[in-house]
Design a protein around this nucleic acid. Structure first.
Lengths: 203, 203
DNA sequence: AAAATAGTTGACCAGTCGGTCTAATATAGT
DNA sequence: ACTATATTAGACCGACTGGTCAACTATTTT
């Protein structure tokens, strides 16, 4: 039980930090507010984390891992075709924003711009998240190319990176527009149109 | 001369704020540092701007307008074909990051995530920038579609938004990766490959 | 020249920031 | 029971935040 208690305090801090940094930013989420929401005194915070920076690295890692697991559970489902899995993944993400509101977006994207210049460890944490996501997506794309669901002239890694980046760009726009139309545009132009075109160059 | 002096002080503040907020974030760029770099005392700042928030709105508007002018000068050059203009625009942007370093990126994208939930006026300023850029790009896309340089089955507005969003996503990734490969991926997958495919659906 | 306005200047403010420290308490090992 | 360690607890710290203010100078208007 003591072990679970230990986990619980740290857990509450990470959960609280995740929520607050997603809502406000890294600088916007003050320690005092994080502590208040987690109902944990400051001393305990500095027992588990050596600094706010260090704390944020763990928050990012946690968020990154959670999302990767979610991706895996969808993209590794061999019962469905690769392209349908990719489509399904983005559908689920879009549904999430549709029901949870277009205001709160991906923590990693949020911190990426704010913090990549501020702190090397934070930059690396964000980079790790992106790289893992891209790699997983690239595998699924390769599967799709093998059965000719996606044009083989695409470079799988490059396409995966572009898809990940495009989606993040769309979620940014979603936040400033206040609705999920940018995600719909991504679906229409990239997924439903662009990826289904065949290679017969115009020139 | 007195008029230009007046302009100069405000100008120096905006320039300084633009630089510092691009480098650090909105929260990361403190007033004192902005003032120090502009060599302007605090009192003068509050003579021209009623708050930091108000100041940031003007900084965003300025940055947005400058970029729009730059876009216009490239995308409205009727001497070149529409698609070449689009390609040229992104080439120039990529060259900029190639020579100026992959660390400093678009201020508007940077502030979009950090600040869209914090302040309505700031959100609107950012939204205005995006909307103007998208609109201008959409016009050029329509031109390209008229001469069949871009497949006519694309919705021009949606495609313009996607291009804008994708590019922002790519610059984010560029910053966390520390190099411009994400921009190269954008070129390869979106511009050189995706847009040149013709519509012959696979299903 | 007088009065009014525009702009400059930096000391000052309350509040908050991330972080430290010491004391108390709980838990575990012996 | 005794000791060592893990955890809780919050008062406290200097530094810095955005913002105010009253005094001052320069410019314009009348």
């Amino acid at each position: 039980m003591s072990v679970t208690e230990i986990e619980t305090t740290k857990e509450r801090l990470i959960t609280s930090g995740l929520a607050l940094m997603s809502e406000k930013s890294y600088h916007g989420a003050g320690l005092s507010e994080i502590l208040k929401r987690a109902d944990v005194p400051k001393g305990s915070f500095y027992h588990y984390f050596k600094s706010k920076e260090n704390f944020a690295v763990e928050v990012i890692a946690r968020n990154s891992m959670d999302h990767l697991e979610k991706m895996k559970s969808i993209l590794s489902d061999k019962a469905t075709s690769p392209m349908d899995r990719i489509y399904g993944y983005y559908s689920i993400m879009r549904d999430f924003y549709r029901s949870n509101g277009a205001q709160r977006s991906c923590l990693i994207a949020k911190l990426a711009l704010e913090v990549s210049q501020l702190s090397e460890p934070l930059r690396e944490a964000v980079k790790g998240a992106y790289d893992q996501w891209s790699q997983l997506l690239a595998e699924t794309i390769r599967e799709a190319q093998e059965i000719d669901e996606i044009d083989q002239s695409f470079d799988a890694e490059a396409l995966a990176n572009v898809l990940i980046n495009d989606w993040e760009g769309a979620t940014i726009r979603m936040q400033i527009e206040g609705n999920i139309k940018p995600l719909d545009d991504f679906f229409e132009v990239i997924l439903e149109h662009g990826l289904k075109l065949k290679a017969c160059k115009s020139d």
